[in-house]
Design a protein around this nucleic acid. Structure first.
Length: 275
DNA sequence: CGAGAGTCCTGAAGGC
DNA sequence: TGCCTTCAGGACTCTC
């Protein structure tokens, strides 16, 4: 389940492989992703050179240029998607939906069993799309501050955990890292966002940055089906404080970790350490 | 506007 | 052994 660290790890893995290379052809085996893959994607990408890949939230934006056009390939891994290098001649599996064939026999293969991911084409000199317009700040920048969260949360009755997971407020904090960050900050996930103090939001912002930063440094801390660009499975070496640890002892106080449902999502927390 | 539910999808896991 | 049900989750979309 790729969250921001996994997407960033994917970006960093792809960049040295594809940067400066031309896309020779594109094979779309199944266009039915979150939104249909554009019918003309192969035409748009064919012959274009990949200049760079940037990230906005969990979207990757492939800067593609050809002699008379410029645009961006937007990809999103959904919750089960991966982008990796395919071996030469490697047969496509059931869920290998798109191949990007680049120069020198390099194939980047998009796999996504649940098809919650996306692959779209954005024409133009800048990556413009309604999906990108509504996104909150990047969590690892200065725009994401305690002051910002405090102000944005006033008058909001939604739980602080759901607030933190709202991409309009801040991008890239998914279910796992929301639980982990709230534990680190000592904030109870069910507390109404509007009732959390400025000081505690300062702590929460620090916790989010530390949690995401650690995960990026660990190379993506996937719990289940994250796949690295090299094709290796992700490894969960970052020990979760609370996520998926219901009934197990809190690493700080020893009390049993609890689970609950919030907005149709599972939340894990320590009732003793989080108030 | 905000809150909450519904939706897409497949594979894993549990019950009988 | 095998079928059926439930659950997991990102994030848009709809309803109230």
């Amino acid at each position: 389940m790729p969250e921001l660290p996994e997407v960033e790890t994917t970006r960093l893995g792809l960049l040295p492989k594809v940067s400066g290379k031309r896309i020779v052809s594109v094979l779309v085996r199944n266009p039915r992703l979150r939104w249909p893959v554009p019918r003309d994607l192969a035409k748009r990408l064919g012959g274009a050179k990949v200049v760079d890949i940037s990230r906005r939230g969990k979207y990757l934006l492939w800067d593609c240029r050809s002699k008379d056009a410029r645009g961006f390939l937007l990809t999103h891994l959904g919750m089960s998607g991966s982008l990796r290098m395919a071996e030469t001649g490697e047969p496509a599996g059931k869920h290998d939906h798109v191949d990007l064939n680049l120069e020198k026999g390099l194939t980047i293969r998009y796999t996504d069993p649940r098809r919650f991911g996306a692959m779209l084409w954005l024409s133009g000199d800048k990556p413009a799309h309604p999906l990108l317009d509504i996104l909150g700040p990047e969590p690892l920048t200065e725009d994401f501050s305690g002051e910002y969260l405090f102000k944005a949360s006033r008058g909001r009755s939604v739980s602080v955990k759901e607030f933190l997971m709202n991409g309009h407020i801040v991008v890239g904090v998914g279910n796992i890292y929301a639980s982990e960050s709230l534990f680190r900050a000592g904030i109870h996930p069910a507390r109404p966002a509007g009732s959390v103090s400025r000081q505690r939001y300062e702590r929460l912002v620090d916790a989010v940055k530390i949690t995401l930063g650690n995960a990026i440094r660990a190379g993506g801390s996937s719990l289940r089906d994250y796949v690295q660009v090299s094709g290796e499975l992700g490894y969960f070496q970052v020990n979760a404080f609370v996520y998926d640890r219901e009934g197990e002892p809190c690493r700080t106080c020893g009390q049993a970790i609890r689970a609950m449902r919030q907005g149709q999502r599972s939340t894990f927390y320590c009732a003793h350490c989080q108030k």
